[in-house]
Simulated scan of single mutants.
Amino acid sequence: MTIEINLLPWREQRRLRKTRRFKQGLLLVLLLGLLVGWGISQYEKSMVRAGQARLALIQRETDSLTRDIQEMRNFRQLRERMLKQIDLIGELQSSRPLTIHVLDQLTATLVDGVYYTELARKGSRLELSGVAASNRQVSDQMRALDSSPAFDTPLLSDVQSAEGPAAAKRFHLSVDEHLGDDTQAGAGP
């Protein structure tokens, strides 16, 4: 008696189980791959969002610093203008006694019969216009200015006379202020 054992159904079932396990493993690996791919894409998206947030922060900080730099430039320009104004005011304050001294000397040297109609100052040069009764008074006025320690030699530009011998003489002359130590010593504080 021979016993015949048919191993084919058992082998068939084993092959089906292996195929099923392979398909399940393949499906599991595919799902795991998709899950890892989705996780990596989410990670990359979060990295991009974080990078964009950092760039936005850097841009805001850059804009803020640019505004601060512009404000500093504006403050520096304002400071320079204020320093110039302070220097100008200081210069005016320091030249006030000198100006008063010059005006005192102009009045002290004024000859009888002569009066000034216009006075202009251009730097250290005075431009004087006036009226005198005669040419001699214009000459005397120039000599009086020349003898003053506050002025250098005057320069007569022109003399105009109206018709007639008794007509007033209009003159224009310029004279430099003498800014020596003797002028400032007489100017006082």
Rank of each mutant, 00 (worst) to 15 (best):
residue 108 A to D: 05
residue 49 R to I: 01
residue 62 T to E: 01
residue 38 W to C: 07
residue 41 S to I: 13
residue 158 D to K: 02
residue 93 Q to N: 05
residue 7 L to K: 02
residue 61 E to Y: 12
residue 182 D to G: 08
residue 20 R to V: 10
residue 39 G to E: 04
residue 172 H to V: 09
residue 23 K to C: 13
residue 181 D to T: 14
residue 135 N to Q: 13
residue 55 L to A: 15
residue 44 E to F: 07
residue 184 Q to R: 02
residue 140 D to Y: 06
residue 43 Y to R: 09
residue 119 L to K: 04
residue 52 Q to Y: 11
residue 152 D to N: 14
residue 159 V to L: 02
residue 182 D to F: 10
residue 175 V to T: 07
residue 120 A to L: 14
residue 86 I to H: 05
residue 173 L to S: 08
residue 26 L to A: 15
residue 82 M to S: 07
residue 104 D to C: 02
residue 16 L to K: 08
residue 12 E to F: 14
residue 37 G to C: 07
residue 161 S to I: 13
residue 150 A to S: 14
residue 169 K to I: 03
residue 118 E to I: 03
residue 134 S to L: 09
residue 7 L to N: 06
residue 9 P to W: 12
residue 188 G to Q: 10
residue 144 A to R: 03
residue 188 G to T: 04
residue 128 L to I: 15
residue 117 T to Q: 04
residue 96 R to Y: 13
residue 64 S to I: 10
residue 41 S to Q: 12
residue 171 F to W: 06
residue 15 R to C: 05
residue 16 L to W: 14
residue 25 G to W: 10
residue 12 E to Y: 06
residue 129 S to V: 10
residue 187 A to K: 03
residue 78 L to S: 14
residue 138 V to E: 02
residue 6 N to L: 08
residue 172 H to G: 08
residue 184 Q to V: 15
residue 174 S to D: 04
residue 106 L to P: 01
residue 12 E to S: 12
residue 104 D to K: 04
residue 37 G to I: 03
residue 140 D to Q: 13
residue 188 G to R: 03
residue 176 D to W: 12
residue 62 T to V: 10
residue 105 Q to R: 02
residue 114 V to T: 03
residue 15 R to N: 13
residue 130 G to D: 01
residue 125 R to V: 15
residue 56 A to P: 01
residue 107 T to S: 12
residue 177 E to H: 06
residue 42 Q to D: 03
residue 131 V to Q: 06
